[in-house]
Amino acid sequence: MSRFDATPQALNAFIDGELDLATQLEAEALVERDAALRQHTEQLRELSRAVRLQADYHAAPAALRAHLGRRPHQPRWLPSFTWRIAGAGALCSLVLAWGLQMALAPSASDLLLNEAVASHVRATLAQRSIDVASTDQHTVKPWLSARLDFSPPVQHPVAAGAVLQGGRIDYLGGRPVAVLVYQLRAHQIDVFIWPSRERPAIDTPAARRGFQTAAAGFDGMAWLAVSDVNAEDLARVLQALTAGDGAPR
């Protein structure tokens, strides 16, 4: 099967020496055998020589020659292709980083629980778990209401055996909240309360750093309890508070 087809494009490539060695040798043999093709080839060569001799040439500025001399030769398509590859790689990296961040970043629920547990621990260690110390609901409730933009319900979870010790004001989720402090045997229970139409959007009961948490929605308020008591007792106390079993005094 012939490698060389005497088309105008192939003849130009033959004259300019752009064919591979095997095809170049085959073309030379074909031109040698075909008188008409040989004459046409000579005419093309004369035209090529005339262009080289008579065409105007302009020397490149010295600065341009120096700049080009410092750069390795690259095909014209390479920079564009390289930038596309680099751009695609950067985009993939950004998508991967965003995915990892979303996967590893704590959810709003986790942040809220972590804040509540940290507040409970901080108040306990600093021995400032109570701003107003009283077992009297009529003392604790007015004190909190005077310092907040809402009036928190204050009850005694009699059925669960917890006793009101007092309350304090703290911050949770970027806003001030009421904290009711209860005692159940040797355990302190902090109950965070703030206005909300729904219960906190968190999965409870849940353990955080060894502390139990439980959440509920009741009486137009969100309730979030934190303690080192066992999960069953904590859930029982919160149930008593939010089911109307607490006896206000």
Rank of each mutant, 00 (worst) to 15 (best):
T82P: 00
S119W: 03
S151G: 15
T135D: 10
W143A: 07
P72E: 05
A86M: 09
G161D: 06
L94T: 11
I130F: 01
T139L: 12
D110T: 15
A123C: 03
C92G: 13
L111K: 15
G89I: 12
A159Y: 12
A162Y: 00
W77I: 08
L111W: 11
S145L: 01
A88L: 14
S134N: 04
P153N: 02
W83S: 05
V117P: 01
A126L: 13
A103T: 11
L144N: 02
V132K: 04
N114D: 14
F150Q: 03
A103K: 11
T124I: 06
A118L: 14
V121T: 09
L113P: 01
A105V: 06
V163D: 02
G87S: 05
A118S: 13
A103M: 13
V132L: 08
S145N: 07
V158G: 01
H73I: 10
R84V: 00
A116L: 07
R84T: 09
H138T: 14
I130S: 01
A159N: 15
A146S: 15
F150Y: 10
Q155D: 07
D131A: 09
S145A: 15
A160Q: 04
A123L: 05
A162L: 01
E115L: 05
P152D: 03
S119Q: 12
P153K: 01
Q127L: 15
P142Y: 06
S119N: 14
I130Y: 00
A116V: 10
V95S: 11
A133H: 04
A116M: 08
A97K: 06
D131C: 03
A133P: 01
A103S: 13
A146H: 11
W98S: 10
L113K: 00
D136L: 07
A133K: 08
Q155S: 10
L91C: 14
H156P: 00
L94M: 09
V163N: 02
G161E: 06
H73F: 09
A162C: 03
G99N: 08
T124F: 08
A97D: 03
G89V: 13
P142N: 10
P75R: 05
W98M: 07
S129D: 09
V140W: 01
R76C: 07
V95H: 08
F81A: 11
H120P: 01
A88T: 13
Q74V: 09
I85E: 00
L112F: 05
S109G: 15
W143D: 04
C92E: 09
V121R: 14
A162H: 02
A90V: 10
W143F: 11
V158M: 03
F150C: 03
V95K: 06
D110M: 11
A118Y: 13
P142K: 06
S107Q: 05
K141G: 06
S129N: 07
L112R: 03
L96I: 15
A97L: 14
D136F: 07
P152A: 04
S134T: 04
L148N: 04
Q137L: 10
P79C: 06
Q137R: 13
C92T: 09
R84E: 00
R84Y: 00
S109W: 00
S109E: 11
L144H: 00
H138A: 13
